[in-house]
Amino acid sequence: MSPQARFAASLLTPGSRCPPGLMTWNGSDPGRRFDVYRNNVMVSLIDALADSCPVAEALVGTRFFRAMAGIFVCANLPVSPVMAHYGKGFDAFIRTFEPAAGVPYLADVARLELLRVQAFHAADAVPLKSADLAHVLANADALPGARIALHPSVAVMPSPFAIASLWLAHQSDDVSAALGGVDAMRAEAVLISRVGLDVTMFSIDAATSVFVTSLAADMALASAAGRAQATDPAFDIPAALALLLRGEAMIAINFPESMLND
């Protein structure tokens, strides 16, 4: 084991002895000083998760959240110095974290918050405006085969819990009053996208969720609409497209080449 491997191993093993080869000017126990590094590593990584998931933290309280995050951190250290992407898998960890079982929606709220961070930092692209769409709709024959390119910030998250309402309640000045009106056990689906510079969430129904997810999987418009209608026969394509427009969620509509050649 190299000296830095020993140093890193000691850092990541709480309560272990400090690595050999350390000294202090006054002969004091270097373990106490080494603990500064140990503390910096753990606290900064837990802070990173808390910064990304403030609502999840509020739902269970800071002490519980930080203890839970600490266990995740020890098993899931960052693999890149780009910390904006740290926390992937935290929601899956929470889902299996027994002490959090009493808050069944905690994992989904954390996932929503992590998706918001990714939407915030996603690549820039010019969204389609209504004029662009009107032009496209004129080409009605080709529309069923068209594929819609979504903005890099777009994400869809269906949940068996009221994730959007829970999140929104925490933006209120009086969180407990706002939470009083939320039925956490009601299913909600959310479309996340960056409108201008602001990450924005839209509550969507299950069929629209299927529709956007299908578009994201590069499915043609007719197939995506078909899947949505299978979920809910009342699925309204124009309403869904209007929502994507308002959410600045579309960047291009690509027609199959055979149609363009006609």
């Binding site: 491997a5 910096n40 590593v41 900064s44 960052p78 693999v79 110095p81």
Partner: peptide, 17 residues
């Protein structure tokens, strides 16, 4: 300083001899 070991990023500035 060093802050990575192998593929692990430790998010602190660690000392060198």
């Amino acid at each position: 300083a060093w802050s990575s070991h192998g593929t692990t990023f430790l998010n602190d500035l660690l000392p060198v001899p």
